[in-house]
Structures are given as C-alpha cells and as structure tokens.
Design a protein around this nucleic acid. Structure first.
Lengths: 183, 183
DNA sequence: ATTGTATGTGGACGCAATGTCCGCTTATAG
DNA sequence: CTATAAGCGGACATTGCGTCCACATACAAT
C-alpha cells in the first residue's frame, strides 16, 4: 500500500514531466529538470522511475490501455468481427492517431531498442500476430515486426516533421500494407 | 591536401574503432576508448569525427558504396532491367546481407533518428522511390519510408537476437512486402 | 495521544563521458 | 634551412547520471 506523500509525489512527477515533454524535445529534458519542476529531490524521482523512458511510458499508459481495450472488445473493424485485413487497417489508423496526439511522449519513451522492451510493443505484436493467424498468412513470426516497423516513433516523426507528410498520406500508405495478408 | 601524419592517424582511428565495435556493444565504446586504442589524443579524434556515429558511418561507407554501385549498374534483378517487384525483393535480400555482416557497425551508426540523416538512407530512399514510380504505385512519398522501416537496425537486431529468427525468415517476410507494389 | 517503525524524502556526492581549448610539434614548401 | 600552416594531444570545465544515507513523516498498534 502506497503512502499518502508517495502518491502525492508520484502525481507531481507525472504532471511536471508531462509539461516538460510538451514544451521541448524529450532528450533535452533531464531527470534533474523533472525533479526540480516537480519540487522533489533527485532520490525521490529515481525511487520510482529509473529513467526518462519509464516516465514517458507511465504517461502513455492510459492512452495505450484505451486502445488495447478497443482492440480486444471494441466495435469492428477495430475490435473483433471484421476480416483481418480490415482490422489491420483500422489498427494502423488508430496507431497513427496515437502517434500524432502523443508524439512527444512516444519519442520520449521509445527511443531505439527500448521500444521492443515495453509491454505495449508486446501487445501490438500479439494483436497483429493474431490477425496474421486468422488470415492464414505464412511466415508470421518475421512478418509481425516487419508490419510494426513503420510505426516506430522515429519513422513517423521523420515523415511528419522532415518530409512534411500528412497523417492521411501516412495512413493510406500503411493501409496498403494490408495487401501482404492475402497473397 | 591531407598531411601524412593526418592520414596515418585517420587510418589508426578507423582500425581501432573497427576492433572495438566488433568486440563489444557500440554504445559501450566511448570516444576516449577509441582515442586510446588508436594511440591518438582526444582532440585529434574530435578533429575529424564529432561522434561515434560518424566513425561507424565512415567504416560502413565502403560496403554501402559497393551495394549502391550494384543497384545502379549491376546485374538484374538487383541492377536495372528486372521488374520493380523483383528488384525490390533483391534489394531487401542484399540489405539483409549487409545488416547481417555489419550489424555491429550499423547499430553503432544509425541509432534512432540519426539513421535518416545519413547519406546512405537518402540513397536507399531514392532507389525504392524510383521502383515505386516504375511500378506506378500511388502514394509513393509515404510508402517509401514504410517500406524501408523494417530495415532499421534495431528491428533487425531484435528479430535476430531476441526472437532468434533466421536471415531466411526475415528475408522471406520482407519479400512479401513487394505485394504492395502491384495492387 | 503516544510511540515505534517501516517507508519515503532530498540533496550532496562520486563518477563517467562529453566536447573544447590552446601551447606544442611536425610536415611540407620554398 | 627556415617559415608557417596544419595537425596533435591532453588538461579542463561541464553536464548528466545514479547512489547513498541521515533525516522526516505517515500509519498502526497500544
């Protein structure tokens, strides 16, 4: 059971981190910045969150949970019921929304390899793999990560920020990937 | 024109870096390690290579050039002449070889966003885009990076190291992506 | 209420790596 | 042989990380 002061500080930390992540590039936010803004000491911060990524993950958590819930029990085509290809397309569209709405958080949490070690990646992976099974697509195990790769925050950020593509263009391109299901 | 001692030191630095990158994880190799192993001072190292990534890029350069040459002027299906889908499949196979043979270098050079800023990425991008144009595929500009995303070193490394997939499995999965060309 | 104690706090501290700076050295040209 | 531009190298300041521990405080048991 969590003590009252601990709970208060956790809330302060998350709030401060959200503000800082929103106002500047995630890797320019130091653990010290977060501690200062939250009004807690360095040790208190490290007690719960060993690094920046874990804070961003905590902040993302609720949004990701909401999407996961819709994937499991929501209406088709996102939820169960629709054909696999349509469900995959709906999943892509939803992920683009998530990336767009919380790009700063996602960039803060999932830099490089750490992306694969989050629980969320495991969930997306299981979901897409199930769709591949349902569609009877061979070579699932390798195809899953291939299909998830374009959702890497760096890729999305590059497409949006550097190339100046719209969310619609990206969503359409991702939708074309559903062609690999039936083949 | 480059002075003799400068050329000697450049060679020493690259050789030392190659050894170090081969023997341990790239991010565990510090600039200081490289300088020490090369027998040069810190300032000498920084004079040419502002960071680890630029050294890895230099080391990768010749291998990438060789592939680029084959893409431009080599035999089909890698070089010009074959249908776009086959050329894309051949490109994927060649990139898997490159990633496999030089994974440590690639991981050292292209962590996260920096991948998109290398000249090599620009080349791969132009190549794949040309294939999309040749195939008459719509939505090129967004599709290019989607098709290149699974070649991100982190993704490949995750598939090989953590999931334990074979190069064949990965190549086959990538080959399936060529389905998006005709559709 | 009081007190005991487990839990939590906070900032000082040591460490490791970065990138810069500048006096010294050396290659090369005339 | 000498002038000089280019290159060298290591000391230094800086920055961020993660730990540690003396102190504080919430909560429960009496």
């Amino acid at each position: 059971m969590e003590r009252a002061d601990a709970a208060r500080n956790r809330a302060r930390i998350l709030e401060a981190a959200a503000l800082l992540f929103a106002e500047r590039s995630p890797q320019d936010v130091t653990m010290d910045d977060i501690a200062k803004k939250a009004g807690v000491g360095r040790g208190t911060l490290y007690r719960r969150y060993p690094d920046r990524a874990s804070i961003a993950v905590a902040l993302l958590d609720e949004h990701e949970r909401a999407l996961q819930e819709r994937l499991l029990r929501g209406e088709p085509p996102l939820g169960p019921g629709a054909p696999p290809a349509e469900r995959l397309a709906a999943f892509y569209a939803a992920m683009v929304r998530l990336l767009e709405d919380h790009s700063h958080l996602v960039l803060g949490s999932e830099v490089g390899r750490s992306r694969f070690e989050t629980g969320a990646y495991g969930f997306w992976r299981a979901h897409v793999r199930a769709l591949l099974v349902a569609a009877g697509t061979p070579g699932r195990d390798a195809l899953v990560d291939v299909l998830l790769a374009p959702l890497a925050p760096e890729v999305y950020d590059y497409q949006r920020t550097v190339l100046g593509l719209t969310t619609e263009q990206i969503t359409r391109a991702l939708t074309r990937l559903t062609a690999v299901l039936d083949g």
